[in-house]
Design a protein around this nucleic acid. Structure first.
Length: 294
DNA sequence: ACATGTGTTGAA
DNA sequence: TCAACACATGTG
């Protein structure tokens, strides 16, 4: 074995990266660690441990097998974004997550998520329409690009393929959430009317709607993430007949899944760089229900 | 068996 | 918030 590289390695750092060494080729991120022999007099060295070459990309971490992991941190916790064949792929995944978690101004490895500005806009819109958990899931399964494309296309099969729940793959919590308002839901809010009345005062303050003929009638689609990181989409509109602001389409499913009952509290929050909206609900404290077992 | 992802730590 | 490192856990 050519001794020259050993000599070089022994200077200063004990690590010697073999990337570029012809005899061993590159083994991804694997490097060799050279340590002095026991009782080592004459500077004898032996290969003891494999170490990992760190990545030049943010959020990218080497894996023992030469592949690359991607991760992002939020609220003191690591969110794992999956493993990838190349550094660049992992870095891309990090960038996507960074934009979803931290908004447009997030520091990324590559300045952009797409080539053109309108592709960029499409990506941002796509990110905004999915929960963090969903985006993370796509990244881990390497389906992000496909889903994005399907979304841009006819919107056809995108919904049909979705069966599985990410099932707590990653707990979500984001930057400080500001509560906009809360409401104690009424019997009609959880009844057959399939709508939630949003008190006018709060609606006009936080969810402004143009009531003119245009958007007033049709309303707008609101994306709200719940405590589990699930994304909910509600139609939000103004009903002239009752002069009230309401969540309609999507609300009944929410009531059903959350088993919402009259008296429960539903609250709306805003958070994060992208003003992501959140919806939370809380079981009303059951008081004075005699005889109810736990 | 091997790849993936977590526990944990120390530095910034 | 971040990556380094060790290694427990998952998976085929």
């Amino acid at each position: 074995m050519d001794a020259s590289w050993v000599e070089e390695a022994s200077i200063g750092s004990l690590r010697f990266c073999i990337a570029g060494v012809n005899a061993l080729h590159r083994m991804g991120s694997v490097v060799l660690d050279l340590v002095p022999k026991e009782g080592g007099g004459g500077g004898g060295m032996e290969v003891e441990t494999r170490k990992l070459q760190s990545s030049k990309y943010k959020g990218v971490v080497p894996q023992p097998n030469g592949r690359w992991g991607a991760q992002i941190y939020e609220r003191h916790q690591r969110v794992w974004l999956g493993t990838f064949e190349t550094e660049a792929e992992a870095a891309r995944a990090y960038d996507v997550a960074a934009q979803r978690f931290r908004g447009r101004e997030a520091a990324t490895n590559f300045g952009t998520l797409a080539e053109t500005e309108e592709e960029e806009e499409a990506a941002r819109s796509f990110l905004g329409a999915h929960s963090k958990a969903e985006i993370v899931d796509m990244l881990r399964k390497h389906t992000y690009l496909d889903e994005l494309e399907q979304c841009k296309r006819g919107r056809g099969a995108a919904l049909l393929g979705k069966r599985k729940t990410p099932a707590g793959i990653c707990r979500q919590s984001s930057s400080p959430r500001e509560m906009l308002f809360e409401k104690i839901v009424t019997p009609s809010d959880v009844g057959k009317l399939n709508r939630l009345v949003i008190p006018k005062q709060h609606a006009e303050k936080h969810f402004p709607l143009r009531i003119d003929g245009g958007s007033g009638g049709k309303g707008v689609l609101l994306h709200l993430e719940d405590a589990d990181g699930k994304m909910w989409r509600f139609r939000y509109s103004y009903w002239h007949s009752s002069q009230s602001y309401v969540l309609t389409k999507g609300w009944s499913r929410f009531v059903k899944e959350k088993q919402l009952r009259a008296g429960d509290v539903v609250s709306f929050w805003r958070s994060g760089p992208e003003n992501q909206l959140y919806v939370m609900c809380q079981r009303s404290v059951s008081i004075g229900v005699v005889g109810s077992d736990t």
